[in-house]
Amino acid sequence: MISGTFHTSYRSDMALRRTWLERLRLGLFIAFVLAFPFLVGKKPYPIFLMNQIGIATIGAIGLNILVGYTGQISLGQGAFMAVGAYTAGILTARFGVPWWLTIPIAALVTAAIGAVFGIPSLRLKGLYLAIATLAAQEIIIWVVTHWEAVTGGVDALVVPPPMLGSLRMNTDFRFYWIIWALAGVTALLTANLFRTRYGRAFIAIRDQDIAAEVMGVNVFAYKLLAFAVSSFFVGVTGALIAHYRGIVTWERFTIDVSVLYLAMIIIGGLGSISGSLFGAAFMTLLPALLTNLGRSLRGVFPAMDEFIPYLQQASFGLVIILFLILEPEGLKKIWDDIKNYFALWPFSY
């Protein structure tokens, strides 16, 4: 179906979407996102789930820039999200900065802190770097819980609701548009980044850092840049969580979150933007699905009631393990296989 496209300029050959089918698919996805709240009749729960997916997508793209594209394993995702969330929360709650302005500020602050904690990547690679970022995770959360004058310590930080005129924006329906607009911008900026020298340098560092250095890439500077760009988007995620939930607590940014996000990008597809979306959707919808399943099973096997929560947890783990065994390259690979199958359809061989 996609044969017969002839590009006559490098400009069109280098476009992000090179064929009409690719453009159609993207158009359909955007139309779906725009229509979704109305398709579900503005019911809060499905929109809430979509909001969770949108927020997680931004964070997953951010983490994927660092881990998937640049090859620097990070266990500090949760803490960097905390930096974004607390920066946005504190600015609004204590200094009255407008909520929309706190999102870019929080992103920049997180980018700066991410770059600082990226310094160990000069000497450390792979698992050793993971341990160094684990230290970042623990240090940042320790600071958050102990710097009571600023963060409120272990107590929750209450963030005043984001207002647009007299409209309270953090209802599920209204915040939906903010989240998905930012998710779209994040995806576009990231896609652009990886068709210029910056993105290529990141991938070069992941694939062959010595060759990258000899090709003229200042590896250390670009690693720090990868930490900064990645943390920028993670900071956006944190800021969105702060304003959406209206409350910031440190428990929401522990090491569990870092691991959850790593699982997201591994299951979705490392080094892929659509994979980040798939992973975010999978890791958000699967627990929700299992919870609903458990609830509906409750009446059927009364004797099993107390085990159902454990079964949910176990099946969550099981699905992830099966996934890694059956499709180690993630949901992105499945999606690519489907696309490739239909590339020559109906004349596939």
């Binding site: 290529r200 340098a201 991938i203 070069a204 694939d207 062959q208 060759a211 090709m215």
Partner: peptide, 12 residues
Amino acid sequence: FRHMTVLDNLMS
């Protein structure tokens, strides 16, 4: 850079 296309390797 094994996971890049030939074109991206050359561009890099």
